[in-house]
């Protein structure tokens, strides 16, 4: 690990002051950043520990929920409002990582975790445009069973690994940011960027900018929501494919729906085309399948990951059928 200085920020202004220096990085639970530093993939000169900043989870005036960026994943998953009004978020959180890691990991850090693409991690043996911009990508023509079928470019097909962010994408969450120029809010679905020609850039964060909170707007039918994750083992593994869904059905017709995908895309993937295809349709497995296909038309498989197209379609149909009782 390269040498660095460590500072525990007392408040957001203090964090920004220290974080403005080039080479400084904000530190949450450290579950990903410390590992990457040990691999010398991340080499910050200074760590600004922001776990002492707001970890509060409070209801907003309009009936939504404001989650401080320093809230631990466990704290969010066990929060009564999350469990009862946004179950998709609680389910996504407990589907991710292990209990020890969920006790450490923060909401802000979860959004900024890096891909687990094995070529990204193989600093000594593989080319990676995300790790070393412009050097090439050994995954595109390599072993890419775990890689993205949506949102990839010729430069990068690494998936975004978060489960939590998939639920947040479905819930229309916004990310609250604070920088030298003041505060701003960005929709979660616009927070992460597609790789394009610059996979080393992963978010719209400006240099030194800090995530202070994530806000969930009120969404009454989110009380009826679910997260399903398919992985290579029963627990403690990243998703091959996952689906976050909330659906509002009246008299057998889909009045509204929220759908997002994980494990199959280069960023938390809001399935807007599927949602559009489904609104106003009968709540049947046939409609769900047609909606899934509308989204997955854009899928571009690599050598080893074409199975994710069928798998994702089946998960979408299964989750929506479960939520609407269409599987009965």
């Amino acid at each position: 690990m390269n040498p660095f200085t460590y500072t525990k920020a007392t408040d957001a202004a203090d964090a920004l002051r220290h974080g403005a220096a080039g080479g400084a990085r904000y530190l949450g639970g450290g579950t990903n950043l410390v590992d990457l530093m040990r691999e010398t993939i991340e080499k910050p000169d200074a760590l600004i520990d922001v776990t002492g900043l707001s970890a509060d989870i409070v209801e907003t005036g309009d009936g939504g929920l404001l989650i401080g960026a320093a809230a631990r994943n466990t704290a969010v998953a066990e929060h009564e409002t999350v469990r009862t009004r946004y179950p998709v978020l609680a389910r996504a959180l407990v589907a991710g990582a292990s209990p020890q890691i969920r006790n450490m990991a923060t909401v802000g850090g979860n959004l900024l975790q890096r891909t687990r693409c094995p070529y990204f991690y193989d600093a000594d043996g593989a080319r990676c445009n995300k790790r070393e911009p412009g050097t090439g990508c050994d995954a595109i023509d390599g072993f890419n069973r775990g890689h993205a079928i949506l949102g990839a470019s010729g430069a990068c097909a690494a998936t975004h690994p978060s489960d939590m962010a998939v639920a947040l994408a479905a819930l229309d969450a916004t990310v609250h940011l604070r920088g030298a120029d003041g505060t701003r809010s960005v929709p979660l679905t616009e927070f992460h960027t597609l790789p394009g020609d610059h996979p080393e850039t992963e978010t719209v964060l400006r240099p030194g900018e800090l995530i202070t909170a994530v806000e969930l707007p009120p969404l009454p039918f989110a009380a009826h929501s679910a997260y399903r994750k398919v992985r290579d083992r029963a627990s403690y593994a990243f998703a091959l494919a996952s689906v976050a869904a909330a659906v509002d059905v009246e008299d057998g017709t889909v009045r509204d729906v929220r759908l997002a995908l994980g494990g199959v895309a280069t960023k938390p993937w809001r399935a807007s085309r599927a949602e559009e295809a489904l609104r106003g349709q009968p709540a049947t497995p046939e409609s769900f399948r047609a909606a899934a296909r509308a989204e997955l038309e854009a899928a571009r498989p690599l050598r080893d990951n074409a199975f994710k197209i069928d798998l994702t379609e089946r998960i979408i149909v299964a989750v929506l059928s479960q939520l609407t009782g269409a599987d009965q």
Partner: peptide
């Protein structure tokens, strides 16, 4: 490497001692 930090189980390998 699991230990209890303020009673919560965490991984001591990914925790910096200063944290």
């Amino acid at each position: 490497c699991t230990v209890l930090l303020d009673g919560e189980r965490v991984l001591s390998c990914l925790t910096l001692a200063v944290q």
